[in-house]
Write a protein that binds this DNA or RNA. Structure first.
Length: 493
RNA sequence: CGGGGUGUAGCACAGUCCGGUUAGUGUACCUGGUUUGGGACCAGGGGGUCGCGAGUUCGAAUCCCGCCACCCCGACCA
């Protein structure tokens, strides 16, 4: 069962146990009674809200509007786009009835066989089909384009195997769906959104990612091209953290969405879709955390600073309260979120451990000794170091410290990735190196057959064909056929 | 869906092989007191259809049969 966090290290074989343990102990989420679903607890949800708010701002800055579409999709919609149905058919929850009744043979309720739906409803695994059937009514002319819509929603995918945050039956996400007059404009949009994801991952989550194309076999069902951001977790496995799809005219044709151009000629629109999910919370946890618990980047921490008072009696607490009130006010004036935990029912030592486990970036402790000297103890989560500083100008120091922590954990993750990324030029080396985890940069002949062979031999897949970096051609490590550039192989979640 | 494992107090577990007092331990919870600069201590207290169903037996957490749920490892995937 769940071992103590300290017994397992993040990079050990028991990573999966460590991860699950951390999620539960840090009060982020727990397994629900419903198969493969999770309950996101308030602290975990607060992180999600920070993610949502930031992404939403970035979407709005680029002209996207939020809307909402139905949870249920008529079964026939899914079959309109051939690749799409093939990709999702195996994991759909289906509603077949709309009423229950008392079991005539005993206690409890049964599904009323009389209440069978004429057409079954699928609980959305993604919303392309219902949205495109709606877009058909919204688009007539080039003046209606581009149509830039985003929705924050839940989706359901009946996966065989689930894991908290990384792959749950139901998950929360945002899905953007856009329609454009030209192919060029749609591709530009697809790239704009993968760039936003990448910027968000690196600047806010402090998680370095590689931008690239998915190979044909890893591509989204129904897409012409899938762009992805790939991150490396501390156990050496890759995690697909966000995708942006260029859908061509596939959905426009399947749902008959045409517009009249400037000359009055009817054309099919060009589409994109893109999404990130609560999986990002899993990515955050697995990128930075250590054996003492979560390590949250200041930009996404529900509170950036926690203050713990140390006192022996009510009078002392009163004095500390007064001192802290001034500090809290100054910190808030600088836009720093602070929690002052002067709850009398927990000891300071308990609070220290608790906030460490929860990943609060900066902890301040203040007691009678500090009041005399006008000092305060400042502890940082990323390095687990602490120092005693003067209260004068402490707010500026903390503001800088938060920036420093944000930068430091990004750099740590970047260094780790660099140490786990290497070029491999023979298949024998590949088989040996893949066991150690990390990203392997290899030449590949571009065929699905070779990719499949490697996957069957080693469980490694092509995470992406990087957009940036070295583009030197070479020879495929398996077949020796020509390769345009190195691609990233890794084992993944 | 295949292989393995586990279901006993809010949580983590012992007890099951070899049936027999009132089902136990840690932790959490409640009361009182002493504590409070890294998960405090003492004393007292509450909390259980032993996963569900059927059977064997004078007697079942324990044995037999059936079912269910969850976890881990695969196949599948954001």
């Amino acid at each position: 069962m769940a071992k103590e966090l300290k017994e397992i290290t993040p990079r050990s074989k028991d990573f999966s146990q460590w991860y699950q343990d951390l999620v539960i102990k840090a009060d982020l989420a727990e397994n629900s009674a419903v198969r493969g679903c999770m309950v996101i607890k308030p602290y975990g949800f607060a992180i999600w809200e920070k993610i949502q708010r930031q992404l939403d701002d970035m979407f709005k800055e680029t002209g996207h509007l939020n809307a909402y579409f139905p949870l249920f999709i008529p079964k026939s919609y899914l079959s309109r786009e051939a690749d799409h149905v093939e990709g999702f058919a195996k994991e759909c929850a289906v509603v077949t009835h709309y009423r229950l009744k008392n079991d005539p043979n005993g206690s409890g309720v049964i599904v009323d066989p009389e209440a069978k739906l004429e057409e079954e409803l699928v609980v959305r695994p993604t919303s392309e089909t219902i949205i495109w059937s709606t877009f058909k009514n919204w688009i007539q002319s080039y003046r209606d384009l581009p149509l830039l819509i985003n929705q924050w929603a839940n989706v359901v995918r009946w996966e065989m195997r689930t894991r908290l945050f990384l792959r749950t039956t139901e998950f929360l996400w945002q899905e953007g769906h856009t329609a454009h007059a030209t192919k060029e404009e749609a591709i530009e949009e697809t790239e704009r959104m993968i760039n936003i994801y990448s910027e968000f991952a690196e600047k806010y989550m402090a998680m370095p990612v590689v931008k690239g194309f998915k190979s044909e076999s890893e591509r989204f069902a129904g897409a012409i091209d899938t762009y992805t951001i790939e991150a490396l977790m501390q156990d050496g496995k890759a995690l697909q953290s966000g995708t942006s799809h260029f859908l061509g005219q596939n959905f426009a044709k399947a749902f008959d969405v045409q517009f009249a151009d400037q000359t009055g000629k009817l054309e099919y629109v060009w589409a994109t879709s893109w999404g990130v999910s609560t999986r990002l919370i899993g990515a955050l946890i697995m990128s930075h955390s250590d054996d003492n618990g979560l390590v949250l980047p200041p930009k996404l921490a529900p509170y950036q600073v926690v203050i713990v008072p140390i006192y022996r009696n009510a009078e002392q607490l009163q004095l500390v309260n007064e001192k802290v009130a001034g500090i809290v006010q100054k910190l808030k004036a600088l836009g720093i979120s602070v929690k002052y935990d002067n709850a009398d029912n927990k000891k300071p030592g308990w609070k220290f451990s608790e906030y460490e486990l929860k990943g609060v970036p900066v902890r301040l402790a203040i007691g009678a000794r500090d009041l005399e000297n006008n000092t305060i103890e400042v502890a940082r989560r990323d390095t687990l170091t602490k120092e005693t500083l003067s209260c004068d100008g402490i707010e500026d120091h903390i503001k800088n410290l938060l920036d420093e922590i944000q930068e430091n954990i990004y750099k740590k993750a970047l260094d780790f990735r660099a140490s786990q990324t290497r070029e491999v030029d023979s298949y024998d080396d590949f088989k040996r190196e893949i066991e150690k985890g990390g990203f392997l940069l290899c030449h590949w002949d571009g065929t699905a057959e070779t990719e499949e062979l490697i996957k069957n031999d080693t469980k490694a897949t092509i995470r992406c064909i990087p957009l940036e970096g070295d583009k030197t051609p070479g020879k495929c490590i398996v077949t020796g056929k020509p390769s345009k550039q190195r691609v990233i192989f890794a084992r993944s979640y």
